[in-house]
Simulated assay, not measured.
Amino acid sequence: MTHRLAAAFRALIALAAVTGVTIDCVQGDPLVAFSFFTVWTNTAVAVALGLGAARAWTGRPPLPAVWSGGVLLCISVVGLVFHLVLDNPASSFNQAAALDRLTGARAVSNQLLHTVTPIGVALDWLLLTRPAAFRPRHAALWLAAPGAYLAFSLVRGALLPAGHPTRYTYPFLDVAAHGYAGVLLNALVLGLAFYALGLLLVAADRFRPAVAGRRNRISSLGAGGLK
């Protein structure tokens, strides 16, 4: 029964991610929606938590920790960057005014993608996984996704015409405003912060207490498996 409760919780998180991504695609241009790191990451959440739910339901081994930890780091980045940088009037990159104008389905999607799924994935990791699954080397490997997104964003921006409304999806990656040197500096600062966050997750995972006994511990998407 415990495994099935875990499966249900993960399925709900996956559903939240799918719902948010679907709303963004239906309400706008799917190609534009999938140019955002938020949508990339929530799609990964939907896949990872969906697989985690299926594995918990059937009692199969979890996904490798390097993959589940990467999803955890990336969705944590999504939530933190949104709330601390983009939706923060004190930030030089804030978009709080535009975000305040979101209504209806777009407002729901915004909350699902930037708040509900990051909290849900974090709770799954904290409450439904065995500790000490992450390794220090994982923190560097997890940077592959943000690095790939940086390359994608710069290439996409170079191919789109000047003045295109969604040429650069995030203000700190806007080459037209900051130049390539400024964007690469922003990316370096953020990358170091993401790496530090990854190391923090590894340390927290190693030293956090088990919420339940090991024998009855839920086999989760982030525990055990291949490292």
Rank of each mutant, 00 (worst) to 15 (best):
A97H: 06
P64K: 01
D100C: 06
S76A: 12
L123Y: 05
G79S: 00
L112R: 05
L102A: 10
S68R: 01
G182L: 11
H114P: 07
L113C: 05
P118Y: 03
T117F: 06
R135I: 02
L173D: 13
T117I: 06
R101E: 15
L112D: 04
A144D: 02
L141M: 12
S91H: 02
T129G: 08
N88E: 08
W125R: 03
L113P: 02
V85N: 03
F82E: 07
A148V: 14
L86S: 07
Y170C: 10
V108L: 15
L159C: 09
G79V: 00
D174K: 13
V77S: 01
A176I: 11
V121M: 07
A140R: 05
L159A: 13
V71D: 01
A151E: 04
L86M: 08
F134H: 04
H83Y: 03
D87A: 14
D174Q: 11
Q95C: 10
R156Y: 12
F152A: 05
L80A: 07
P64D: 02
A176S: 15
V81S: 02
N94S: 15
H83A: 05
R137L: 13
H178R: 14
G163K: 03
H164T: 04
A105R: 10
Y180W: 15
V78H: 04
S92L: 08
T115S: 10
L184N: 08
A139H: 06
G79C: 02
G69I: 01
L159G: 03
T103R: 07
V175S: 14
R130G: 12
V66T: 02
P171L: 12
A162E: 13
R106M: 12
A98R: 13
V175N: 14
G179A: 15
H83C: 00
A107K: 13
V78T: 10
V116E: 04
V116A: 10
L159V: 12
G120K: 09
L159F: 05
L99Y: 09
G163P: 03
L126A: 14
A98N: 13
L73K: 00
L123S: 10
R106K: 12
D87P: 00
R137Y: 11
L112C: 04
P118W: 03
G179V: 14
L102K: 07
A158P: 03
L84V: 04
V108W: 12
L123D: 03
G182A: 14
A133E: 02
R156P: 12
T117N: 08
Y149D: 03
L73F: 01
T115Y: 02
V116K: 08
L185V: 15
